[in-house]
C-alpha cells in the first residue's frame, strides 16, 4: 500500500489536496487540516505532491503493490 504523509509543520490547510486528489484519499478536519484517511485508495499518481504549494505532502509508492 502506498503511504501518504502530511507534514503538519509546513501544511497551511489550504484544502488543495483534499479538493484535487483524484482518488479522494484525503478528508479534512474542522480546521481544514488534511487527513489521508483513505490511503488504500492512493494510486501513487503524485499529483497531490505537485499541487501542494507548501512541500507538505509525501507519497511513498509501494513498488510491490499489485496495483502498480
Amino acid at each position: 500500500m502506498n503511504s501518504v504523509t502530511v507534514n503538519g509543520l509546513w501544511c497551511k490547510k489550504c484544502g488543495i489536496c483534499v479538493e484535487y486528489c483524484p482518488a479522494k484519499v484525503f478528508t479534512a478536519e474542522k480546521d481544514g487540516t488534511p487527513v489521508p484517511a483513505y490511503q488504500e485508495k492512493c494510486t501513487g499518481c503524485g499529483i497531490c505532491v505537485l499541487r501542494c504549494p507548501d512541500f507538505a505532502l509525501d507519497v511513498g509508492v509501494d513498488v510491490d503493490d499489485g496495483k502498480r
Binding site: L9, W10, K12, G15, I16, R51, P53, D54, F55
Partner: peptide, 18 residues
Amino acid sequence: LLKDKLPLFWCGGCGNGN
C-alpha cells in the same frame, strides 16, 4: 530546497510554492 527555512512564508493557497 532549504528545508530548514520552511514553512514557506506565503499565505495558504498561494501558488508561489508550486
